[in-house]
Nucleic acid binder design. Structure first.
Lengths: 342, 342
DNA sequence: CAGTTTTATGTAATCGATTGCACAAACGTT
DNA sequence: AACGTTTGTGCAATCGATTACATAAAACTG
């Protein structure tokens, strides 16, 4: 109050107890008697005391902060996940740090642990270099990492993700049910796990349905972006024999694709049905509104954050829950339609 | 290396100097001789030393972290700004904390300063309660706050923002140049500064151009969302006399609006021209692609972050630069067209 | 060359909380 | 009543860096 920030000493003085007691009253309430607890809480009120996080961190050797590592902060796809993460940490009095893997030296990620800036990490970037992950895995911090959304198959970090494989299957089955037999796919970034899983799902579904498996119907988008979709549209236009329906690695790809082929005179869904993946906010308002696979991104963030919290607190999960897959669901809209009779 | 994290003592031992010297060699390199500096840097290499942030913070009474306060982390609009902010802080070795104003008790914002979690704050939410801001302004932390994007006119915190007023004028002038005379507007959330500025711009432009100023052409959207736009579309459809062109408080409004009126049989731009605001990524791929006012969100983040850094370092800006307005620019696309002759 | 200033380094106090240990009071048990 | 537990509190060391102050060595000055 009077000039400086009050410290624990001041509270102790006001309450007429020792600093040890104040500390205990605040962080282990039932180590002190009811009477002193009230006394201390009262003194805290009076002084406006707030515990100094730096001092606390120093002594307890923990920072009460978690780092979320994103491949690209500017990518709106992640904001919703981040929101889920944040909601969990805020209620646990933890701070959420964010960083972008672009723009930082990769080895500086370990530094967050080394210099006590973060107690744990949620990695949303499947492209973190192997070398770093090995290093992390072998370090004492290995238990304080959770992957969310993307992951690295060759590492055993816990991971929370959507059922990408199943989602792709749903997309294909939906098109099949609408009568489509010539089904294509535009994939995301090469070497990305999501790309691979979704591709695997598409292939599995097609095999299951005894569909013609035409390599030419698969376009390598190279990214999850609008541009990738537009680019793919150009390849698409040049095909001699075109699929009547196409599944995409992401909503952005789907929209970029639709936008470009529309510009070139094709109509969705009349000429071709298109399914996206993600169900980003705009999907329902796109014209035509986009049939897509909905991922619950908030839940993904919440689960990852809760898991990490457990992990740090030493509450172990059964190995079976090491990988949590969240159900996805097809949302039928106007970008897909019954195949017109030839 | 050997088990525990090395501390400054270890480095001192290896280098054969005192801890004071190590500290100086690292944070004030030119306080020590070239020779010792090399010695220390070498020892740091050998030991793998990283300064413990908690200890440093405690002693220096600063956290080396900045808080970004968003109205809604889940809203993709902000991710790009955040990205700009992050890029600045990362290169300055500062950590970026993020928090959502929803879900936290408003008075706990002051706590970030009180308990030394953050050295400064970038507020992206114009709806932070007055009471809290007064409190902040009067506190010693008042100089460590910058508003970005949104702001509170009645407070004198520095602010970085887009030229919302000018943007709205450009939108109207663009429509005017295309022959439109009956121009409407769908506004964003009530009581929001951006809403007010953009509305003011629209009115100013119309007055300037001697346009018919019809209250009925102004629809209160109530939010910057897709839904608000769809809602507005329903009001629009019920009008007896409709404007031939409409400017929107945001791209999302514009898209929601277009989506809904398209569903109801109108055509954009044939029946009505629509201008958005923001130029979010999808705007160019929307169908029709959206004519809109581009805000440079990354730059906004970068400027706000740099300003705050200066502010904290005690580098004062001339009062004239207290408010920085970033130019915006109209991007003509396909959602606006020459007015068809009646 | 004696005296003064500058430069480089070390010693030890300090930041503010937490916690191991010691101890006194209160409670139980026979 | 005597002794063993349990409970509640205080003392003081501790976490790891920074920095005021002291001091020795080097550089300058006339």
């Amino acid at each position: 109050m009077n000039g400086k920030n009050p410290k624990i000493q001041d509270v102790a003085a006001v309450a007429g107890v020792s600093t040890a007691t104040v500390s205990r009253a605040l962080s282990n309430p039932d180590m002190v008697s009811q009477k002193t607890r009230d006394l201390v809480l009262d003194a805290v009120q009076k002084t406006g005391y707030r515990v100094n996080r730096a001092a606390k961190s120093l002594r307890k050797r923990q920072s009460d902060a978690i780092l979320a590592l994103l491949p690209d902060l500017g990518n709106p796809f992640f904001s919703q996940i981040l929101s889920g993460i944040e909601s969990v940490f805020t209620t646990s009095d933890l701070s959420l740090l964010v960083s972008d893997t672009k723009g930082i030296r990769q080895d500086s990620i370990l530094d967050y642990f080394m210099d006590m800036r973060a107690d744990g990490m949620i990695i949303l970037d499947g492209a973190v270099p192997r070398a770093l992950l090995s290093q992390l895995q072998d370090s004492p911090f290995g238990q304080r990492i959770v992957f969310a959304c993307e992951w690295k198959p060759e590492f055993k970090f816990p991971s929370v993700r959507s059922d990408n494989f199943g989602g792709a299957i749903q997309a294909v089955e939906h098109l099949y049910a609408l009568g489509h037999r010539k089904i294509g796919h535009i994939s995301g970034p090469r070497n990305n796990v999501l790309t691979k899983e979704r591709l695997r799902g598409v292939e599995a579904a097609m095999t299951n349905l005894n569909l013609l498996f035409n390599r030419d119907f698969f376009i390598d988008g190279g990214a999850f972006s609008l541009d990738a979709g537009a680019q793919a549209a150009r390849s698409f236009m040049e095909m001699d024999d075109r699929p009547t329906a196409i599944t995409c690695g992401s909503d952005l790809i789907a929209m970029g694709f639709i936008s470009e082929i529309t510009r070139r005179g094709l109509k969705v869904p009349e000429d071709i049905s298109v399914v996206g993946f993600d169900d980003i906010e705009i999907a329902g308002s796109f014209i035509p509104s986009l049939t897509t696979i909905r991922q619950n991104r908030t839940q993904l963030g919440v689960l990852a954050a809760s898991y990490l919290l457990d992990q740090i607190a030493g509450r172990v999960h059964p190995p079976a829950k090491q990988v949590q897959e969240i159900d996805v669901k097809l949302i039928p809209r106007q970008s897909t339609a019954q195949l017109a009779h030839a």
